[in-house]
Design a protein around this nucleic acid. Structure first.
Lengths: 141, 141
DNA sequence: ATTGGTGCAAAGGATTTGCAGTCTA
DNA sequence: TAGACTGCAAATCCTTTGCACCAAT
């Protein structure tokens, strides 16, 4: 086995002060293979489809860690489902309340110009813009 | 007892096609006494502090009903806590991740100019802008 | 009578926690 | 070897559901 099959991800983790364990590397590789939104559950499935098995607890621990370290962004759209976004560029989301689908807003599509000053004693942590949409033919009430 | 101690709220509910029961009136009175953000739990406490007792199930049923009928807006900031906002005017929120506090963004403070076109086959359901803030002296990582 | 609403308790589902065993440095 | 990490299962917490009882038409 080659000693450095995953140099990039491992280095990325170290940069952020995260010990690159096997599980974390596996998780990070999936997350950063392409920008995506995944739930903890989806990620767990993806990982366990591969060689390295990880537990539910580790998925949650790792996602929380990555989130705190700024490697992924938490997107909370539903009380029963958090998504983790590996695309860190400034962008916002459509959330289809009928399907539960989360998609990016085309970058040219939104103008969130000036942010308000945050309250005294606080600092900005992040801005979420979630545009809720639903199927055009479901009046739903 | 006066036959119409609560004419306003009762009428409001009827307008929206909601049968004005005692519990719903009580809940609505609290919600609309002043614009506020409450969680289901907080509202349950508030209601049960008064004369009319309501159950947890009724609180949830009622909040979901009011939300569907457009009387309150759901604000989802945390997977474990939904707030219900009785202020329906277009506005956005600060969410203090350290304290769990939700406050309004001063109306002049934000410019969300153009919204993107929603995907084909869908219609706009609502837009949430949540500005996450944290205590200035808690680096937290 | 029928339909709708409420309450209670149990169920459900996502996330967290405790703790023992394991790995990293 | 010390400290950090992982896995498993149990525990938590918010929210929903099932079902019996009550109210209104």
């Amino acid at each position: 086995m080659t000693p450095a099959a995953t140099p990039t991800v491992s280095a990325l983790l170290k940069e952020r002060g995260i010990t690159p364990t096997q599980q974390r590397i596996e998780i990070a590789q999936l997350l950063f293979a392409r920008p995506q939104h995944v739930s903890a559950e989806q990620l767990l499935e993806q990982v366990n489809r591969g060689r390295t098995r990880v537990s539910k607890a580790t998925i949650y621990n790792t996602l929380n860690l990555f989130s705190r370290k700024g490697l992924v962004r938490e997107i909370i759209v539903d009380p029963a489902k958090v998504f983790y976004d590996s695309n860190l560029s400034r962008h916002h989301h459509f959330f289809n309340v009928d399907t539960g689908e989360l998609t990016d807003v085309p970058s040219d599509g939104i103008g969130l110009d000036q942010l308000p000053a945050v309250p005294v004693g606080t600092v900005l942590d992040g801005v979420d813009v979630i545009i809720r949409i639903r199927a055009a033919d479901r009046p739903y009430r």
